[in-house]
C-alpha cells in the first residue's frame, strides 16, 4: 500500500480538504464524499448560538479526521492560544498552523509561524505549518519538530496554481517529513502537478467549494491527485529538445 503517513498515522487518500467557502453543509458533505478525503480542516471561531448544524457533524458522520487550523491569527501568541482551544474543543493535538501577515495577500508570516511552531511542538502538538514556498524555512521547521510542511502554490483562494514549481521541488528533495502543497490550486491539473513534483499530498478547499459543481470538481481532484502520484512513482521520461523515434528504422 502507498499510504500517506503523518505523525505516525496512515491515510490512504492523499487529498486533504478544507471546508471554507461551501454554500451549504449539504454541498460540503457531497464534495467531501466525492473527494475521498480522510483528513479535513476546520477553523475555530466564536460560538454563534443561532448557528444550525455543524461542520463537525458532517466530519463525524463521514468518519473524516478533523484538522483544526489557526486561520485568522496574525501573531504566534494568537495561534498558540487558538491551537490550545482547538485541542480542548476537538480532542486532537493536530493543528494546521497558519499565521498570516496581512489581509490582502493572506501570505504566511514566517517569523511568527516559526515562533508558534516551536512553542506548539514543545507543548506536544502535531504541527503542520502553512508556509511560503521557501526551502530554507521548510527545513528549519522540520528540524524544529513539525510533522509535515505545507508550502503554498499561490495565495489562498487565488486559483493561480503553482507559481514556483522549482522551489516546491527543492523543498521535496530536502524534506524527510511529508510535503503537502497547500493553497493556490485552481483546477485538477494543478493538483496533478503538485504530486508529479513529488509532494506527498495536496490540501485544497476553494477550488472545490466555489466550483460551479463542487461534487464533480471534488471527484476530479481525487483523480488528479491519484494520477499525479502514480506518475511520480512511475518516473517520467526526460525532456528532450528534439524528437526521438519510438519505432526506429534500424537497430
Amino acid at each position: 500500500m502507498d499510504d500517506l503517513i503523518i505523525g505516525g498515522e496512515k491515510f490512504a487518500s492523499r487529498l486533504i480538504m478544507g471546508t471554507g467557502g461551501a454554500p451549504s453543509l449539504e454541498v460540503l458533505d457531497q464534495a467531501l464524499v466525492a473527494s475521498g478525503t480522510e483528513l479535513t480542516t476546520v477553523a475555530m471561531r466564536r460560538l454563534d448560538p443561532a448557528a444550525r448544524g455543524s461542520v463537525l457533524d458532517v466530519l463525524r458522520r463521514r468518519d473524516i479526521k478533523v484538522l483544526p487550523n489557526t486561520a485568522g491569527c496574525y501573531t504566534a501568541g494568537e495561534a498558540v492560544l487558538t491551537a490550545r482551544l482547538a485541542r480542548e474543543a476537538l480532542g486532537t493535538p493536530w493543528v494546521k498552523l497558519e499565521v498570516i501577515s496581512d489581509e490582502r495577500t493572506l501570505l504566511p508570516d514566517p517569523i511568527e509561524t516559526f515562533d508558534a511552531a516551536e512553542r506548539l511542538v514543545a507543548d506536544g502538538f502535531v504541527v503542520l505549518p502553512y508556509i511560503g514556498d521557501d526551502p530554507a524555512l521548510a527545513r528549519r521547521l522540520e528540524q524544529a519538530g513539525c510533522a509535515a510542511v505545507m508550502p503554498l502554490g499561490a495565495p489562498i483562494g487565488s486559483g493561480l496554481g503553482i507559481r514556483n514549481p522549482h522551489n516546491i521541488e527543492l523543498i521535496v528533495e530536502a524534506a524527510s517529513v511529508p510535503v503537502i502543497l497547500d493553497a493556490g490550486i485552481g483546477t485538477a491539473s494543478d493538483a496533478a502537478l503538485a504530486m508529479e513534483l513529488g509532494c506527498d499530498a495536496v490540501l485544497l478547499a476553494t477550488a472545490v467549494t466555489r466550483a460551479q459543481r463542487p461534487e464533480l470538481m471534488a471527484a476530479a481532484m481525487r483523480g488528479a491527485v491519484e494520477a499525479g502520484r502514480a506518475a511520480r512513482l512511475a518516473g517520467r521520461i526526460p525532456k528532450r529538445r528534439y524528437a526521438e523515434a519510438s519505432s526506429p528504422m534500424s537497430k
Binding site: G18, A22, R45, A51, E98
Partner: peptide, 25 residues
C-alpha cells in the same frame, strides 16, 4: 479545561471567549 468550568469563578471585567469549530481553511 472543561473539567474546571464548574470550579473556576469569574471576576469583574474578565474576558471570556467561547469557541467552536466552523467551516474554514
Amino acid at each position: 479545561r472543561r473539567s474546571a468550568w464548574d470550579t473556576t469563578p469569574l471576576s469583574e471585567r474578565d474576558r471570556v471567549e467561547v469557541l467552536t469549530a466552523v467551516q474554514g481553511g
